[in-house]
Design a protein around this nucleic acid. Structure first.
Lengths: 195, 195
DNA sequence: CCTACCGATCGGTAGG
DNA sequence: CCTACCGATCGGTAGG
């Protein structure tokens, strides 16, 4: 018989917030609604969290950490740039799909962060995108890739990866890694010099 | 000397709303803020519009019309499917970039439409995406395209096109059609059987 | 974790 | 297009 350990209230609040923020957006979700979903009074939320924005920033920076952690080992690996890029696409997409609620909030609502979180977030994102750009650049220097506009290419890569959460249905039996690989197939074959 | 004709108030309200909704999102923008931006009292807005949601739905359905109008002539043209697809990508992307404010609202805030607008919007979008799917399917039957998963491919196409508004900077001197063509280059070369 | 409550702000209406 | 105002709801605090 499995023992069910209740999650700490703070975690429950976080996860329920991710769900509600995903459905209605951060601004349109009230603390009263969140409390109701948890079956407690609105004021009780503040025993566990400092403010509504604390929840948002913890989602945003938490996801940022997860994304960095996912690609870090790949950057250090001994692989071709094409292999690295594919692995990064698969890793990034898996993080998105493994955290659909949080990543939806991450993509839509980071704009509602106030300073200094807002600027901090943007610079993290820039650094993350730079890692992808670097691989592309090395691949170009290498002859592996034929990319005219690196920035444009990175933006398009992220567009494709970061919208998967909007149409992905787990019932499709299309697994997380499968989505990433299909994405890589579609995108890489337009990138690699000689297939 | 050019004669400057003042735009009708209703149009001013619409355009200012597009700007504010784009910056802060629909839910986080108040009618008081909108009125202040126009230099009138909040209550005065209601001489020209019925409700806040009326503005949103007029943005959403107006953009939907514009998108359909842009691809319609291409569908009827006498071209290969590859040529059609490229033209549709360029046309769609141009609409996005020519209406950055409205299209940002269109992509982010359609979720806040209430019924029956909500369902109506979704079915319009489905019909629009179907037009792209159709071209892909014909191209596959044709031997022009090698696409294993049509739905997946359409979703990825739209992801790439519909995120351009987020990073496009007019100062880049990258023209609207240029963006579309670069997108088509990147995407089509992963789609066409024999380049 | 609750009761009780704060000042601020929301979308919108009545009537001119 | 304005003044005056509505009831509802917001994020959050005090005190237990």
């Amino acid at each position: 018989m499995p023992i069910t350990v209740e999650k700490p209230r703070k975690v429950q609040i976080q996860e329920t917030a991710e769900e509600l923020f995903r459905e209605r957006g951060y601004s349109a979700t009230s603390m009263r609604h969140l409390a109701a979903e948890l079956g407690i009074e609105p004021a009780s939320l503040y025993s566990h969290i400092k403010s509504k924005e604390e929840i948002l920033s913890s989602i945003c920076f938490g996801m940022a950490d997860t994304f960095f952690a996912a690609i870090e080992p790949i950057l250090k690996a001994n692989k071709t740039n094409a292999q690295k890029l594919r692995a990064m696409i698969v890793a990034h997409t898996s993080v998105v799909l493994k955290n659909v609620n949080a990543s939806t909030v991450f993509f839509h609502d980071w704009r509602h962060l106030s300073e200094p979180n807002f600027s901090e977030f943007k610079s993290l994102r820039k650094a993350y995108e730079h890692a992808f750009k670097q691989i592309l650049a090395e691949g170009v220097a290498n002859g592996e890739f034929a990319v005219a506009d690196l920035s444009f290419c990175v933006k398009t890569l992220f567009s494709a990866m970061n919208m998967t959460h909007e149409w992905y249905k787990p019932e499709d039996a299309l697994q997380h890694q499968e989505v990433g690989n299909k994405l890589a197939n579609l995108l890489l074959n337009g990138i690699i010099t000689n297939p």
